[in-house]
Design a protein around this nucleic acid. Sequence first.
DNA 1: CATGAATGAGGCTTCATTCAT
DNA 2: CATGAATGAAGCCTCATTCAT
Lengths: 192, 192, 192, 192
Amino acid sequence: MASSRTRRIFQAAIDVFSEYGFEKATMDEIAARAGVAKGTVYYHFKSKEDLFVFLVEEGTKLLHEQVLARIPADAKAEQRLRVVIRELLAFFRANRDFCIIILREAWGEEGRQREFRRMLVHFVHAIREIIDAGVASGELMVEAPDTVSWSIFGAVSNTALHYLFMDKEYDLLSLSPQLERSLIHGFVSPAL
Amino acid sequence: MASSRTRRIFQAAIDVFSEYGFEKATMDEIAARAGVAKGTVYYHFKSKEDLFVFLVEEGTKLLHEQVLARIPADAKAEQRLRVVIRELLAFFRANRDFCIIILREAWGEEGRQREFRRMLVHFVHAIREIIDAGVASGELMVEAPDTVSWSIFGAVSNTALHYLFMDKEYDLLSLSPQLERSLIHGFVSPAL
Amino acid sequence: MASSRTRRIFQAAIDVFSEYGFEKATMDEIAARAGVAKGTVYYHFKSKEDLFVFLVEEGTKLLHEQVLARIPADAKAEQRLRVVIRELLAFFRANRDFCIIILREAWGEEGRQREFRRMLVHFVHAIREIIDAGVASGELMVEAPDTVSWSIFGAVSNTALHYLFMDKEYDLLSLSPQLERSLIHGFVSPAL
Amino acid sequence: MASSRTRRIFQAAIDVFSEYGFEKATMDEIAARAGVAKGTVYYHFKSKEDLFVFLVEEGTKLLHEQVLARIPADAKAEQRLRVVIRELLAFFRANRDFCIIILREAWGEEGRQREFRRMLVHFVHAIREIIDAGVASGELMVEAPDTVSWSIFGAVSNTALHYLFMDKEYDLLSLSPQLERSLIHGFVSPAL
DNA sequence: CATGAATGAGGCTTCATTCAT
DNA sequence: CATGAATGAAGCCTCATTCAT
């Protein structure tokens, strides 16, 4: 990702993939939005698939930097989970197009789709470790940590996706308190 | 959906769409799996898009019959939410391919994608009504019923999807107790 | 052309052919407009081409009855030419769709196109005979009777076509005096 | 129409269209005759229709250059009409295929057909202006200049078409004196 | 490094025709 | 006689990829 030419093409690709999906996106459109000739795209990326693979790698890196790396190592489990939820929403807001791509292209048996799932699995695994630690310390009570980890991820990502498609500019961060509360504490009235 | 021929083609379409996604699925493959000539597919459905539209309609009907219609009208909110979760999982198990299609093709701006979202919105709205009733009766305590409804749906569907892609035959119903518990009551140890 | 069924289909064919042209017309549309099943069309006419051949035959007959047969055998050449022009315009008015088909499909090397040209040649030959007779009697002075015959036919038919496409209901007969005069006498001011 | 490749394809298109007509012509055949791959045709012209539109534009230009621009501005009306007839025949001879296409595809309601008619209307209008001028100067005596203009055009074009289909190599220019004379002066014997 | 013309495999769709009922 | 479901050849068009400049 050295040259700025490469980056311009890459950004155009994210743009186009998120708008059309992998199959319907065309290399012509990507080249046009990047403002380069089609041959140039092929000079920097060997194929359409390759462009997509790059996306996964880049995304994994970003997810690390912008979400996982920000989880406080020494806080309590609940607090760490709250941070995950909040930062994941922030990540969605900051990388809208990219997130749409991932969540749309993760379910299937094509090579790139497995790649995307691997990335999600990796992320969910991080959630799981927080939960495991919380359980070990007696702070949390979770029978099926794997299921719970996926359901947290699913709840946050699907909800975010829904609001983004309702309104491109929706401030996802405002959902954070509600999601944190309902996911961690549930919503049955304590009184009952 | 009268003739059995029509149904055969429709089933083949679900099959192929779930395996390849809308864009990559080919009418040739659908015809081959249905065991008819390509022209026959077009005799029964006027286009690829049309086949997809049928899918939405059929799916909406199934979702109604197999999930929404089974929610007990007079039970308590918590109980009704548990049923929704359980039946949704059962629905995923019974209509694996169809569900994969929906969740994959729901996010985008194409006509069929909006159609799918409309269907999801409809379903989530049903969850929301249960929550509203529970809040009205004091049984539940929910600040943001919309967000919570989407997060329930997202949690269940994403988790189901994940397990299905890990193992086609995974018994999704076994996830039900865990999801019911963690979603409704949260998972912070009561002790703390 | 016995049964009324056959006639209904034939009329529908003229309708559709004149609207779409031979190639773009479909047997489905013809069947639909005739109010019969597609198989029925094939029961009465062996193929699309066959339907077209019928058209030529039928048209030739009509042209005979409605134009050629009305030329007074014993009148002077000029008078007979005037009748030809007038009756040809009347024929266009009465068989609008059919005439459009003929003039559109006459120029090409396909079998049916040669057939149509044969029909035109036959008609133009009738004009030529009038001219020849007029020349023989000293009434007319024509160096190239063949060329003149075609140019009369071309002038009348093209002009008619133009007005019909400007206005479906245009009264073609009103063109008759003008065409008769200008074709037979020319239009250079006699004074000069 | 810059590159020679583009021109080769265009020529092949005229060739094929004139031989088969718009509907029956295939892009495969055009590509084959141009000696390029099918994709190449689409690289230069975005659709079959587009190729046809080009034809109209190109043809309109040629008609201007080769016919209309050659009409002497200061000659007498009769002389100018003679030139129109002569140059139109020359145009038919020089652009045989193109002319066949135009006259065959001008009558119908499709977009391209209206386009072709527009072109003819433009041309006939030029004839009409000559006639109008001749009438104004007292040189001609024409009651219905519009009808006469169309009939001149129809006479020349239909006659030319007929001879071309009889003999591809027929020397159309030899028809000019006959057509000029019979159209302008009529053919009733002056003696009578 | 960059270009963009050229390619051809492959996809969607149409439609004349057949044939079992 | 009549039907309409079924067929498959054939047409239009797209687009990832290559390559000579």
